[in-house]
Design a protein around this nucleic acid. Structure first.
Length: 380
DNA sequence: AATTCGGGGCC
DNA sequence: GGCCCAGAATT
């Protein structure tokens, strides 16, 4: 197929499966490499469907080094499906705090309940049943069953998209469905019949440790001999994506409202950012972090009448896709009483903040509260 | 097919 | 400051 006089790009762009020879080389070399180079991970040393499931959910859009401490704590508190299913959602969220994409935790919790009610507490082994669980898509179902039950199923995610695009010279826009189809086809053709889980992990491990986005270590790559991108020196051009990440600037303020030593927290509603987590009342402000009628905003959101006392402290926190300009105001005097509202709001002693799963910015404010409220800037 | 959802690692 | 990360659900 390759090696004739036609441009390489033309031929390989249409190659959507590895031929038998390349399949064999990929499997052999990658499994050998994986046996000697794989990193230690807590879900590898002790393997079960439950542990691999939890790890795969945590690993969605999240790097291994970030996940490991969360995984350890989570498994200590929720060692099996039953303990997870029985827990309150708020408790589950507490152990997810700081990891991001909190819907993952809520769906994980829902799925645990489903497994108890519909599968007798045993994580299912049928691909369709697993795919039907909330929070589990094509990648995660294949990953769990191949890794924890050695089922010959393909996977495709960030790392392996890059690996396959380079190995096979896939030049199409990776966002396009046609390109995705080609990549899934490549992934399917390389599935190892003997050790599918190890080969899948080897592909991902290669993508994160060797076949990296910026500085791929092709010299130490076990499969550079069959890599189209390496042969044509296009490692840095593949995979191609036309999509550019854009940031949306956000200016928001949180307001510290205290009464009798307690502070007002509200639980973020479904549909808004940090759904289910707790936060200080938060409002949109202008570019300078100011709002023309902050007291009215507080009243509108919480049903409380407040008197804004000072505006002495500010900090910034950058979040991917958002930039939050965070300012805090302290309202010392609250005239109104707590009213019944749609919002789930609560007066919380500052020493009890740790009992609430919080947004990262909310946690930051909570952690620095002591220095904030004793600051001379706030109480001149 | 495009958006949304977080936070951190890494250059 | 930008890009990327063991993606899924929603619109």
């Amino acid at each position: 197929m390759r090696g004739d006089s036609r441009p390489v790009q033309c031929c390989v762009a249409r190659m959507t499966k590895y031929n038998a020879s390349i399949q064999s080389t990929l499997r052999q070399n990658l499994l050998d490499w994986f046996d000697s180079h794989q990193r230690e991970m807590p879900w590898r040393s002790e393997k079960s469907l439950y542990r691999v499931w939890v790890s795969e959910i945590m690993l969605q859009q999240t790097q291994v080094v970030t996940v490991i401490p969360y995984f350890e704590r989570f498994l200590e508190r929720f060692p099996d499906v039953e303990s997870l299913a029985e827990a309150d959602e708020a408790t589950v969220l507490t152990f997810w705090e700081g990891l991001g994409y909190y819907r993952r935790a809520r769906l994980l919790h829902q799925a645990a309940k489903t497994i108890v009610s519909d599968f007798g507490g045993q994580f299912p082994k049928s691909f369709d049943a697993v795919l039907g669980l909330p929070g589990i898509g094509r990648y995660t179902a294949g990953a769990i069953l191949s890794i924890a039950d050695n089922q010959p199923l393909p996977i495709l995610e960030g790392n392996t998209i890059r690996v396959h695009a380079r190995l096979a010279g896939v030049t199409g826009d990776v966002q396009k469905s046609g390109t995705q189809k080609s990549l899934w086809s490549l992934a399917t053709s390389v599935v190892d019949p003997e050790r599918p889980g190890d080969l899948n992990q080897a592909l991902m491990e290669l993508g994160s440790e060797v076949c990296t986005p910026k500085k791929p270590q092709c010299g130490s790559c076990p499969v550079h001999g069959v890599c189209n991108a390496f042969q044509t020196k296009r490692q840095l051009e593949l995979p191609y994506s036309s999509k550019k990440i854009r940031l949306t600037p956000i200016n928001e303020s949180v307001i510290l409202i205290q009464r009798r030593g307690k502070f007002l927290l509200r639980q973020c509603l479904d549909g808004e950012r940090w759904a289910g987590l707790w936060d200080f009342p938060r409002f949109q402000t202008d570019e300078d972090g100011l709002h023309s009628d902050l007291e009215a905003m507080v009243h509108a959101s919480t049903g409380l009448s407040v008197e804004i006392r000072d505006t002495g402290w500010s900090t910034r926190h950058g979040v991917t896709r958002f930039k939050i300009h965070l300012r805090c105001w302290v309202a010392e005097k609250v005239q109104g009483r707590l009213r019944k509202t749609q919002e789930n709001i609560q007066w919380v002693d500052r020493h009890k903040f740790e009992d609430f799963p919080m947004s990262v910015t909310g946690r930051k404010v909570a952690t620095e509260l002591d220095s904030l409220i004793t600051s001379q800037a706030l109480f001149p």
